[in-house]
Amino acid sequence: MALTPPDQALWWKRPLSRAELGWITIAFLWGLFMFFFMIYWHGAGKQNLSNEAYRISAEKFTARTQAMVDKYKVRDYETKQGVKIPVVHPPAGEDVYLIGRLWQWWPILELEKDQSYRLHISSLDWLHGFSLQPVNINIEIHPGYEIVLTVTPDTSGEFTIVCNEYCGIGHHTMLGKIFVVEQ
């Protein structure tokens, strides 16, 4: 019984049955396969999270984002409450900045379909979760670190950034937008 000492004093010398050996082999090989599939996808797959990240202060990141807004703002987006949020349309290939802060993703981005952008994201205060819907891309955003990813929107339309890392009482109101337009 599992509740009593093993029946055979030399239990570690007993041979395995074929069924056990077979299953252990299959399970082990499957593990190896899954391990190498992640590595394979780094080469062959198109969806890999970038490893590029830097430490950055909130002031510096705000300044860079503000500079981008000043340069590429095309219009304002007016919210239900009448607040204006800038919409920026940077040229393809450009560095694009996105701030997460209590409780807003700022500014609103307008990108062109099938163009690549270097998207920098950081938080100015607490942890936030970048959750792009309905595409469903989810990335943890830290204060003090900027992550830089190269993204190529391949569908056009209106996309919403939901905050999916709990960030206090306004967490469920923290949204942002990305518009993807045809070239």
Binding site: T79, V162, H172
Partner: peptide, 23 residues
């Protein structure tokens, strides 16, 4: 799988400044 956030009080986003609906 449909994208809904965990730890989230209101998936209708009724108080949010921007509109959004999950499927």
């Amino acid at each position: 799988t449909l994208g809904v956030s965990r730890r989230h009080w209101d998936i209708t986003f009724s108080d949010a400044p921007l509109p959004f609906d999950y499927p």
